[in-house]
Design a protein around this nucleic acid. Structure first.
Lengths: 264, 264
DNA sequence: TAGTGGTCTAGACCACTGA
DNA sequence: CAGTGGTCTAGACCACTAC
């Protein structure tokens, strides 16, 4: 009815379209549904009415209902499954923080004026401890590549990085250091892999015995330890890197911004 | 035409719907347009054909074209402006990584079975060094609250956290430790602030003199240092916290997943 | 004012889920 | 197999932009 009045009346007397109050109809419906999620009309875990039912309740077409649900879905409030229905995920828009970066480089790789130098490389068979770190089954063979990263201008290295790649990608060793590209990207290209996810563990610890000399710090000095696991779309890890940054030589900075709020 | 055949022919001979190859029609169209962005048919900065033109070219309804454009828009490849048209933003989907968390808690706050204990609190005037850390002008007064966080069950504290809030929010001190909520959330509620962004610095360093005892570790032991700056929508910092996690007692884990790819 | 994208309808078939 | 969400059509009016 409201809809009708908008389309019909506007022809003769636009005055103030219903739209100005509350935005498009689907937005209004999304707001209304959101209110019903908050007040418990549709508790978390329950099913929302079907799209056809909702279009009846609001006297709108199914399209309009779907646009409203699309908004709720984008806010993470509902799940829609073909054939199954729409279920309530949460009663309130998440205070969801999103970090976006143009590329992984910006996250945990390094400026372009740094270079990676290979110290040594060898094939290793994963024992239990290593297998756990690599997320593989014990007995698999991986290529282990020990490197340091240096700012081209400066003497002191930024960090040491030990890179593990599955043995079938071990040939990537030849490419490391030849281009300023991250190793994961080189592996990706050369072996036609797809990078789907990166798992990152950040912790602190002492600089290891062997590395202190390379890094020109005392042994056991505090260091930031970053472990990165690169996964293909199937969830298989194809590369793992472990970096060790002497304290005060590296700060990892990120900014999160809030999304998923109706006020946005 | 292809479309036609699907809807019409399927009635009599569904066999293998055109859908199975390449997904829904709008997806195919998005893929085709994407290819045309890549090969320069539609250079960056140029206008895409209008929706009506595209629906003619592909022999589909405008709805289908719009779904396709919606995909491209979500990938950041095109901009759509009512009345103006659709412009090309980029020729290739970003390799963009996104970290999502349900809440800031999941990022850098702590499980529910931990509690924050206030050690001491005082008002301080920001000197130059502190002012820089707090992102304010020297001379401002802030409330400084020193705390430790403990797992309720265990003896050893997880970390020490020094919290700075602007003096006008200093009264928040009364609330700390009373509820399991993060301090920033308490400030937000009590003073009706909006949290818009969080800046995070991660680094490693030695545990400070005074804190070693609290944390039950030797002085200068390696620690993970986390500094968080909470900003309101205007970019004003209203809270800063500095946490010190003894090594091996804390790992910060995050997962990034790739978005903006057609393959997803 | 012409033309664009934004919203909306009414109706249809399809793919999938679950009983 | 009934019912759900997913896709799609054909057509309409609106809000906005640019000329």
């Amino acid at each position: 009815m409201q809809r009708k009045s908008k389309n019909a009346d506007n022809k003769t007397k636009p005055s103030v379209p219903a739209r100005t109050a509350g935005g498009p109809r689907y937005q209004q419906i999304a707001d209304d549904l959101l209110a019903k999620l908050r007040d418990g009309t549709h508790p978390v875990g329950s099913m929302l009415p079907t799209e056809v039912e909702l279009s009846g309740q609001y006297s709108v077409s199914r399209y309009t209902v779907r646009e409203a649900l699309r908004l709720l879905e984008a806010m993470g409030l509902v799940d829609r499954r073909q054939g199954a229905g729409t279920t309530v995920n949460a009663s309130d828009p998440d205070e969801r923080f999103v970090q976006e970066m143009t590329s992984v480089d910006e996250l945990l790789q390094y400026p372009e004026n740094t270079r990676l130098y290979v110290i040594s490389a060898k094939y290793v068979e994963a024992g239990e401890a290593l297998a756990e770190r690599l997320g593989c089954t014990p007995g698999e063979t991986w290529q282990q590549i020990d490197t340091v990263r240096r700012v081209t201008a400066t003497a002191a290295p930024i960090c040491t990085t030990t890179i593990f790649v599955r043995s079938e990608y071990g040939a990537i060793l030849d490419d490391i250091g030849t281009v300023p590209e991250p190793v994961y990207a080189q592996v990706q290209k050369r072996f036609d892999l797809q990078l789907a996810r990166v798992g990152i563990d950040l912790s602190a610890g002492p600089v290891g015995e062997g590395r202190a000399e390379l890094l020109e710090v005392e042994p056991h000095a505090p260091a930031l330890l970053i472990m990165r696991r690169y996964l293909d779309p199937k969830g298989r890890i194809f590369e793992v890197s472990e970096s060790c940054h002497p304290a005060a030589r590296f700060t990892y900075r990120l900014t999160l911004r809030r999304t998923g709020r109706t006020e946005d």
